[in-house]
Design a protein around this nucleic acid. Structure first.
Length: 326
DNA sequence: CTAGCCTA
DNA sequence: TAGGCTAGG
């Protein structure tokens, strides 16, 4: 059960990067990293990103190559990291474990068969956010003076909270769940080539003439990260049912369907664990020498892989620094 | 309309 | 992962 159904409900528009100039984006760090890891490592030789000790640090390449995108458009990123894993994901967790085991099996087979292309591809899919990846990312961001915030639970929920409070302008994530969490404005595709997509929460509710609670209820009927969803309920049917009957409980009653733990799932979206205990500085003054040393010397990333990224950071930060005085 | 399959 | 296509309700 993907979130493709949710996309159909969402009010989404393209937004030119220029319109985002001067804004602050709370980036779902795990989501961002995961995207970089799966796209950076795919099709490439992973020895470039592996230290002599066998630690995979492709994330550092991702950080150095990914940040210029923000700086060059005068956007301040604030990276929000996940805290403890949220409960109740049993189904999803079990499914992912199953998928991963399958991939690892196939990876073994490909290795034995000497199919290098398949190995590289499967390798990227088995990538996970290891402790090393998370801690080196944090440290690299700190050296580059990019704000880092620790969420009590899900980073996406914390980022959304900050956007709802007005502490940041946008949430940055590929995940449509941000809509269910009530993120007012969500930016997608911040990592890819073209202009980003803007997902508008209020416009979404307006379009379907439903409340936040009803949107969440419809999503539960269609299926979320936390539940399977009921067969036969796509975007149209789910929204219609919720609008007609009021909420998910009356839908259960009237249409003789049921989802386990619906009340708890609802709360995960409507009242997630978040904190007001955060602060950050929008001025970014990277210590490029220290960052270079950290990435290339301490973690042995080939200079050729990050040279251009560091240059772009240097230029874009100097550039925006000058802008402020003119 | 939805689900499932397939491809780019 | 997104979008198109199709069978089936």
């Amino acid at each position: 059960m993907g979130n493709a159904d949710l996309r159909d409900l969402a009010a989404i528009d393209e937004v030119p990067f220029d319109d985002l100039s001067g804004s602050v984006v709370a980036v779902d760090a795990h989501n961002w990293l995961y995207r970089y890891l799966t796209t950076t490592v795919r099709w490439t030789n992973d020895s470039i990103y592996t230290t002599a000790d066998g630690e995979e640090v492709a994330n550092l390449v991702g950080v150095v190559q990914g940040l210029p995108k923000f700086f060059e458009h005068d956007i301040t990123p604030v990276f929000v990291f996940d805290g403890s894993v949220v409960d109740l994901k049993d189904d999803e967790v079990a499914q992912r474990r199953e998928d991963r085991e399958k991939r690892e099996e196939r990876l073994e087979e490909a290795r034995e068969a000497g199919d290098e292309l398949a190995v590289a591809r499967l390798d990227s899919q088995t990538q996970r956010l290891t402790d090393t990846i998370l801690s080196t990312t944090r440290e690299a961001l700190e050296l580059l003076d990019v704000p880092v915030i620790e969420a009590p639970a899900e980073g996406e929920a914390q980022a959304t909270h900050m956007a709802r409070e007005g502490a940041v302008d946008y949430v940055g994530t590929e995940d449509y769940d941000a809509l269910l969490l009530g993120a007012p404005l969500t930016l997608r595709q911040l990592t890819s080539k073209g202009d980003p997509e803007l997902m508008d929460f209020e416009a979404t509710l307006d379009e379907h003439d439903i409340t936040w609670e009803q949107l969440v209820d419809a999503a539960i009927l269609m299926g979320t990260d936390f539940n399977e969803g009921i067969s036969g309920y796509g975007p149209k049917t789910a929204v219609k049912a919720v609008r007609e009957h009021g909420d998910i409980w009356t839908v259960f009653e009237a249409e003789d369907v049921y989802v386990d733990n619906a009340d708890r799932i609802r709360d995960l979206f409507l009242e997630p664990a978040v904190t007001d205990d955060y602060e950050f500085d929008r001025e970014i003054e990277p210590d490029l020498e220290a960052a270079r040393a950290f990435v290339c010397e301490e973690w042995e990333v080939a200079e050729s892989e990050v040279e251009r990224g560091f240059e772009r950071i240097e230029q874009s930060v100097v550039q925006t620094g000058l802008d402020r005085w003119t």
